[in-house]
Design a protein around this nucleic acid. Structure first.
Lengths: 191, 191
DNA sequence: TTTATACATGTCAATATTTACATGTATAAA
DNA sequence: TTTATACATGTAAATATTGACATGTATAAA
């Protein structure tokens, strides 16, 4: 598998980067579909170097600070392109703790179910509006041949994904409300 | 974290189960938001037993086959309920190899981009229709106090998620087509 | 009665990932 | 000039997960 390998290769292929730069990328744009900590990135960079897929040049920042600026090799570019064209089988559905909770939520009270859903909804709405703000900064859609096109489409994909999540939560909240209302009605007409 | 712990606890809480039964669950309904192999499940069951959260009884199937039928303990039920009520911070966006590929897709040709998207679309449509078939088997929405309600809502959530994915792929395909059309037009009018 | 498939339970090695530990520089603001 | 924050690079231990190895029974169909 080693997907991290290709994520890093793809980033360095865009332009030369340090491990620190790569780490930052994973906490920004890339975070919409991949993530990694620096403790995973530095060892992977070493491995890629050993495999001849990237190479680095030491650059001095300030007076003494040594940065390792990585570039992709021809071999690395070749492997990246090969990976990009692979038609992998669909991945298992991603894990989701909140859905797991909702799956077992018949164990908690109606009020608690509603509270959980509202808390989650709030967080999802915040996330959605962050994505939307970012998306709005694009004056126009970038050309498909440009790296910015990748940025653009995955951002839009993230927006659609969050919207679907929000839609789902609201639907479930609707179910819970309807049921409560029906129960109240039953109490009234048949006391 | 140990989310698997709660997934298993939740399952056994619904009714007594063997490790084999749990494994099957993970390849069915649960697969819409969690998964685990039996090589992870059996050791976890042992751990839960040691912690006094579950206990088992040996049942003989056929002539000699020993099954371990697990039940949840009071302590286990208590821990499960506590976990269900936890308001965890939102999780990092799930990893997605296909989105990663699309992110770097400016490295491949227009035709290759389109091919990748079509292959993915095809698989997503198949998955969507499976989910839809399953969803249709519900005559009516189960009551929110029942375990079936959990099954129902996560299935609907999975449907919404797949729909959003499909919508995204179609949107990107649309972008690529438009751009190609515009390029053709430019060639025609200004040869 | 053979044979295929589902049932049933485990371990082990390798890989992937997280969290904590560890250290130091550069730069801008107070 | 102190101080906070970002820059910069690593390692180690613990946990999570996968894939391969390992073994055997039950059941229904051919």
């Amino acid at each position: 598998m080693r997907t991290l390998k290709y994520a890093i290769l793809g980033l360095i292929n865009r332009h030369d980067m340090t491990g620190y730069d790569i780490t930052k990328e994973f906490s920004q744009g890339l975070s919409n579909f991949w993530n990694a900590k620096h403790s995973q990135i530095y060892p992977e960079l070493k491995k890629l170097t050993d495999e001849g897929l990237v190479s680095f040049e030491i650059v001095i920042a300030g007076d003494v600070l040594e940065k390792k600026l990585y570039s992709i090799t021809e071999k690395g570019q070749h492997e990246l392109k090969k990976w990009l064209l692979r038609d992998d089988p669909i991945e298992p559905t991603p894990k989701d703790k909140f859905r797991l909770r909702m799956y077992f939520s018949d164990e908690i009270s109606h009020a608690q179910q509603v509270a959980l859903l509202h808390q989650q909804l709030e967080k999802r709405l915040v996330k959605h509006s962050f994505l939307e703000e970012h998306f709005k900064t694009y004056i126009k859609r970038p050309n498909a041949g440009s790296a910015a096109f990748g940025d653009y489409i995955v951002l839009e994909g993230a927006l659609l994904r969050e919207s679907a999540y929000i839609q789902w939560i609201r639907k479930v909240l609707g179910y819970l409300e309807t049921e409560r209302a029906t129960a109240r009605q039953a109490l009234k007409t048949e006391p």
